[in-house]
């Protein structure tokens, strides 16, 4: 399970990889949160283009990071989600939060 984190002009981009389930969501959460709390970005981009599988643990991961970036006064964007991942995201109604899912 990989997450490649980079920063540019206050924007934090997390390129996720592999499969996101309960087993590896915890480690991802820790590495994203510790970076975000150190660098205080005003925008967080979660890039799912290298993620082959995600279950509802990924929804918990997105929702928790949404709360975190809102606390920092920033925005969250979700990009690169496959059709399977988009279906899971749709079930959670994340678009209703005004979350950008591309």
């Amino acid at each position: 399970m990989a997450a490649d984190i980079s920063f540019c002009d206050g924007c934090m981009t997390v390129r996720l990889g592999g499969e996101i389930d309960h087993h590896n969501a915890g480690l991802l959460r820790e590495s994203i949160d510790s970076s975000a709390e150190r660098k205080l970005p005003n925008k967080l981009i979660l890039d799912f283009s290298k993620v082959g599988f995600m279950d509802s643990s990924g929804i918990g991961l997105i929702m928790g990071r949404y709360r975190l970036i809102k606390e920092l006064g920033g925005e969250l964007e979700v990009i690169g989600a496959s059709p399977q991942i988009k279906r899971v995201i749709k079930l959670a109604g994340l678009e209703r939060l005004g979350l950008n899912v591309g």
Binding site: S57, I59, G60, L91, A92
Partner: peptide, 15 residues
Amino acid sequence: GSDRSGLGFTVMESF
């Protein structure tokens, strides 16, 4: 807890 979405059964049902 806060990082569980509560959507497990919803996902099972719709998939």
